[in-house]
Design a protein around this nucleic acid. Structure first.
Lengths: 332, 332
DNA sequence: GCAAGGTTCTGGAACGGTCCAAAGAGGGGC
DNA sequence: GCCCCTCTTTGGACCGTTCCAGAACCTTGC
């Protein structure tokens, strides 16, 4: 009762296994009647190719591993979507692995993917282990998507352009007439880039001395507390640019609790265009990170490297867009 | 420059390939010095077993496929976590595939998993194609997790106990003193179960004629509109039980927009304990679906079937818990 | 010193495909 | 009718493992 093999199909169709293989791989060197006989036999037997056998023989798996470090981050889904669309067009499968799930178990999260001999690797989000990744990159194409970090040589990188995003936000607020603007900063490479770009943009508009930066921890609670501090100052800012949506929700709570109306008394802006920001109850002005485009670009890089292996690591920054919703307006 | 094989290791250690295989699979029929020599050689060469070759030879992959139909649903992550912990303990890998990503491409989302000859399949969420699943279930263990649907014979099923969850909510509200209670119903098997249990519980407490049911579409917008209708009635309910958190957020918006304070003027309850419900800005009372437990149980069922194949499909309902937060209180 | 019996090790046959060199079939030209 | 050439088809080697039967080696007992 084992699943049928290519040989079973061959026998039923009255041909050799080689011919079956030829037909199934779509060769045009086969007489039509034989082709049909083979196809019919395969159909009748419910034949399915065995991926293990195929990849053993072909020395490639037509599969790329995708290492996620946090399935909970909904932004990744857009990215995966973009990634998948292009990879599929290139005849490649995507294999997902969640680093966080496996980390706890105490093994390198990429191990299962490497044992499966994936043809390439996409790491989504913060790097688990830069050193290990360098070794992997010597054997197969590797792309880092959705994070801004120093990467080992030969690794491509795709991410949203955080500097541009932060500039869009800051200029939007300045354009509305805000002058005293606060930034709730985050940590990591991304937090750093957004903060610096905020400061640079303020400076470029001659508002360097009106910029305030409070450091948070990228949580709602952190955003709440930082905003309470900010809005209790005598020279309280009229606008708050939070490093991400979740921090922004904290800022919103704080403003309301202090009796300030948004956006009438204070404007707030988030970052990431998460589903939370789209709740009509919150309706946050935020930045969309172009996740789909990042995913497509990562796939592009990978496909390029399959064709021409080696070469320098490249970097692509996808252009973010501003989503203006209900939490920003002119200062009163 | 191909990756080293078991033969390379054998040569370097001065033994046969069979002995290497024996050592690597942890046999105790090997003299310690040989074992060490093999292990050292493997280490030095950076040997990694080839999963394709192994599964071809062993006729099993030690891998179970997990078919998700919506990566965006954060509840699944808890479920995966529970699933993974037990599967890993059983020496099994998890392979994720997102049905939604692949559906668009127009192929059966389970196909890649079947070609890989996974040893078992976990379908998370609503069934893609019940008929196809029946055929699959004849060849390998299949478990449906996190959805309540009629399944083909021989398929196990694990889900949260929606009836119990809805009862917990309803009795919580009744216990607080509410009498006129509305339910924002949803669709599908889950929506049906929650609604019926709400009605049954109201009846059991002699409140059948105070129960109101509005049908929504499980979106924020739907929840908003239904709640506006409800709260504009002359005999407006003092509590609203929404079929899920997102609908509940819509209800919350509606209440606020009508100038009603929550929970002072009206209590609202969600379902699913999503991250949204935990935002301090919303702080919804809701029901936790015990995702982790559902995942563990699904793994248990799968492991059982590996040991004793065949038999009836079983069903397990995990007990949900009530998360009482800020949106419920005594009626005024 | 040798047979018996246990332990340790090995060669070869799977597993289910792909690939390649070569065989077979068919057609055309002389 | 024969030779040559092209188009189809085939058998066998190979991919990297596991598994198994049996070989080689050690003890042990007499």
């Amino acid at each position: 009762m084992r699943p049928p093999t290519i040989r079973d199909v061959a026998e039923r169709a009255g041909v050799s296994k080689s011919l079956v293989s030829l037909v199934l791989r779509g060769s045009d060197q086969v007489r039509p009647e034989k082709r049909e006989a083979v196809l019919r036999a395969a159909q009748e037997l419910g034949y399915r190719p065995n991926a293990a056998a195929r990849s053993l023989s072909e020395q490639r798996t037509r599969t790329v591993g995708v290492l996620l470090n946090d399935l909970r981050n909904p932004w990744f889904v857009d990215l995966l979507d973009g990634l998948n669309s292009l990879l599929h067009a290139g005849g490649l499968q995507m294999l997902l692995a969640d680093a966080r799930l496996n980390r706890r178990i105490g093994q390198d999260p990429a191990d299962p993917l490497l044992d499966l001999r994936v043809d390439g690797l996409v790491v989504v989000g913060t790097l688990p282990d830069p050193a290990a990744l360098g070794a992997v990159a010597e054997r197969m194409p590797v792309v880092l998507a959705g994070a801004r970090e120093p990467v080992p040589a030969g690794v491509d990188q795709v991410a949203g352009d955080d500097e541009q995003g932060a500039r869009l936000v800051t200029e939007h607020l300045i354009g509305l007439g805000h002058r005293r603007i606060a930034h709730l900063a985050g940590y990591g490479a991304v937090g750093e880039l957004r903060r610096r770009s905020f400061e640079a943009t303020m400076r470029a508009h001659g508002l360097a001395d009106r910029a305030v930066v409070e450091t948070g921890d990228m949580t709602e609670e952190g955003g709440y507390r930082a905003t309470v501090r900010l809005l209790s100052r005598p020279d309280r800012p009229t606008a708050v640019f939070a490093v991400n949506d979740i921090t922004c929700v904290g800022a919103l709570s704080a403003a309301e609790e202090l009796g300030l109306r948004v956006p009438h008394d204070v404007s707030v802006v988030g970052y990431d265009n998460t589903s939370i920001s789209r709740l009509r109850h919150l309706w946050l002005t935020t930045v969309d990170n172009a996740g789909h485009e990042v995913g497509r670009r990562a796939a592009r890089f990978l496909l390029d490297r399959f064709e021409r292996p080696g070469g320098e690591g490249r970097i692509h920054l996808a252009a973010p867009t501003l989503e203006i919703r209900g939490t920003t307006g002119r200062p009163s």
